[in-house]
Nucleic acid binder design. Structure first.
Lengths: 232, 232
DNA sequence: ATGGCTCGTTGTGCTGCCACAACATCGGAG
DNA sequence: CTCCGATGTTGTGGCAGCACAACGAGCCAT
């Protein structure tokens, strides 16, 4: 039932961009395609790192849970990105949980192929580490944000990040490309769903966003940027 | 005046551990040793990445500054660690400023040697990326911390991190191994020097720490761990 | 010694955010 | 159609932590 995957799926993604068709064929033949329903875990915090993944379609939230039971969203993965790449950083257990936000199609490779990929395929390692660098930068920005910005600015930043990462242009604005609840946003910004709700209501009154159930459309991005204090 | 550097300086550091003496000799011969006074910048945010560094002695704070002028301490570098390794992550400009906390001795290499190091020296890349992984993990912890913990817990976490990274055992406790002000701690935790001062005074009354000018000694680490909520 | 600086402490008032509760609304399952 | 759970909204109160100000103490230079 797994229909043969087409090489063209990978040719435009950074880690594979410099590779030849036969090389990409090899890589695809070694992959296991997987389908996930919304709201399930692709891998879980604390489990041993056994595979690495590429998200073909859908969206993934990377979540960390505290001993106290609070959870925060560390990262969003967009289609075309590698994730679960603990292998690249010498990790033996996953430091976080990857949860699907909607229907997801994922390619998986066993971990022991990682070393081979990096040495055999020109540019694979470089491009991958570039992504790591970007994530590092984003985390850094979020720390600065959390440390210096007020709640309203943090929420504005979070929504801006969401639309730059997953945004879809629709008439009347830019829409967040994945289902998202107030609770999700409060998990991203370290505040409460109540406060998020109030902020979104306020912004809707001001004509900056349209907020529906599990969906947010930004109608005046520039004003949101102003509110955010322009960090990220 | 640069006396010849001894190979033994590097043999025990992770990135060089698997290398032979002649290889280490090559690496040392390519290095420029540099001395820095306390409180000066080794490199600055926004400048092009031209060199990478190894801290031989002293301590370095990696600092980010916001458009609003607030600054927060992203990272501390301990002796023996590489820093400014933007090259490894495809960065072309430094994303932060590296500021010396005390007298520092640093080795520097021009950036174009990076690629050669990673391919010529077995284990250099792997070990380096392991460090990157650890820093990534630490940043993640700090985000979780900032999002979920109260100020008191964050400050406790910050001090625990300081003593695990730079701690020196002295009679009566563990002392932070670098000069540190309340302002520094508030920059690490996103609070104010006033609040830090109050917390430290309180802990000193409770016999958990000894706090002097630019120096902190933890006398009851276990109680600080309890206060911290045990995240990092 | 002595001035000047940086660093630390502490009191007071204020406010932004959280906690909780109660209600409204939506969507799916049977 | 109806019920139920998940999601979102809104009002009220309380408190943690910030802002500001004023003072004290150590360190350095000349």
């Amino acid at each position: 039932m797994l229909k043969k995957l087409d090489e063209s799926l990978l040719t435009d993604l950074p880690p594979f961009r410099r590779l030849s068709r036969p090389q990409i064929r090899e890589i695809l033949d070694a992959a296991t395609p997987l389908r996930f329903d919304p709201g399930v875990a692709v891998f879980s915090e604390g489990l041993p790192v056994e595979r690495f993944f590429l998200l073909m379609d859908g969206h993934i939230r990377v979540i960390r849970t505290t001993p106290g039971g609070d959870q925060i969203i560390a990262l969003h993965i967009a289609p075309g990105q590698l994730f679960g790449i603990g292998a690249a950083l010498g990790k033996t257990i996953y430091p976080a949980t990857a949860m699907t936000a909607d229907d997801c199609l994922v390619l998986a490779w066993p971990n022991q192929l990682w070393a081979g990929f990096t040495e055999r395929y020109e540019g694979f390692a470089t491009e991958t580490y570039k992504v790591v660098g970007e994530r590092l930068g984003e985390l850094n920005n979020r720390i600065v944000e959390m440390a210096t910005q007020a709640v309203e600015q943090r929420v504005a930043c979070a929504i801006l990040r969401l639309i730059t990462q997953t945004g879809r242009k629709v008439d009347g604005g830019i829409e967040v490309g994945l289902p998202i609840t107030r609770q999700n946003i409060s998990d991203m910004t370290g505040t409460t769903p109540y406060t998020v709700s109030r902020l979104l209501s306020g912004w809707e009154r001001d004509g900056i966003v349209l907020s529906e159930r599990r969906k947010i459309t930004v109608t005046a991005p520039h004003r949101l940027v102003v509110l955010s204090g322009a960090i990220a």
